[in-house]
Design a protein around this nucleic acid. Structure first.
Lengths: 184, 184
DNA sequence: CGCACCATGTAATGCGTTACATGATTTT
DNA sequence: AAAATCATGTAACGCATTACATGGTGCG
């Protein structure tokens, strides 16, 4: 359901192809919302069937045709309605690493530590991305759109969430590794 | 795929019915892994077909029959293999609240603040649960199983993740609300 | 009297991933 | 010469949710 809303959100900025939508998501919302190319194509098709978007095929020379999607009035109304409805529950999470750890009482101490350190490296890399590249991308996107300052503030809030999340994850790993070393 | 492993993990402690597995998950892993009752039943059935578990129907008087599942040698081997394989990637997340916030530049300032405060209350409640009830449940479960101390340490690490996550979420909301009030 | 708990499951539908299929252009 | 990028999509499958279906026991 919410991939549709994400796509409407982007198409509300400007008309785009499925390919462009995928790329845009990858550099902006991938932190908290992602989708595969194939799912984006099938979802756009379904949305056109429901009148939320319309598509227009543009021929290109030496390149494949582009199918450009534009949001309709119905789509705009749908997006507004979705944005105005508050989220009343917490999001349920799935964390494979925690699930394994939960059942790992018989695993070797060293294997657990290695696993956690591996994850720590990954979190560290993400943290640096949020602090560097992501900040730059936000400024670029905001400069290219009307109302950029407002948008940049909110986009940066979502970036900041990613940053704080990764910092937390690293703190948790360090604390947990210490505990395993000392008390397991 | 990993619901199967979660179920194997629990059945490795003792034989259980689908109903008991659901209840056990709800008070232990629901923080980082959850499933609906119907999915648990269908998954157990599939697992029996694959030889990971066997079931035995026990008649009861005045109560519905119980189908008790027991882990097989194949199931134990499968669980061990899964536990020994490290997770090499970060988990992708989906956060509906962030997605909405990302597209909310045209929403009323007050609506955004109300939404965030609503979520703050939910996170606060979860935080208290991790600091209270969850701690107690872990002690109870650990006392009833062999190797309880080791298990309690790891279970508590997953509880601590939940606690730290909620604290982080609250900090992020407070920071974001302040930003919206002052700068939007 | 009504609600929660015990206990099982199936069917339909929707969301998401992987694999399949094609082919030119641009960069390394 | 190989890989990445541009650009489209379909088909098969698996994971997950919602709705449907049943019925007795125990508690307030």
């Amino acid at each position: 359901m919410s991939l549709q809303n994400a796509l409407l959100g982007f198409l509300n900025y400007r008309p785009m192809t499925g390919y462009e939508l995928k790329q845009t998501m990858d550099v902006s919302t991938s932190n908290f919302w992602h989708a595969k190319q194939s799912q984006i194509y099938t979802t756009l098709k379904k949305m056109e069937g429901n009148g939320l978007v319309i598509s227009d095929v543009q021929a290109q020379d030496g390149r494949p045709d582009r199918r450009v999607y534009t949001i309709t009035q119905t789509g705009i109304a749908d997006l507004r309605s979705w944005l105005s409805q508050p989220v009343m529950e917490l999001q349920a999470r799935k964390e494979l690493v925690l699930l394994k750890l939960f059942f790992s009482a018989d695993e070797k101490k060293q294997a657990l530590i290695t696993q956690l350190q591996l994850q720590r490296d990954l979190h560290q890399r993400e943290l640096l991305r949020y602090q560097g590249e992501t900040k730059v991308v936000i400024q670029q996107f905001a400069a290219a759109l009307p109302g950029g300052a407002k948008k940049a503030l909110l986009w940066n809030a979502t970036r900041r969430y990613g940053e704080m999340y990764e910092e937390m994850a690293i703190r948790w790993i360090d604390e947990t590794v210490k505990l395993i070393k000392e008390e397991l």
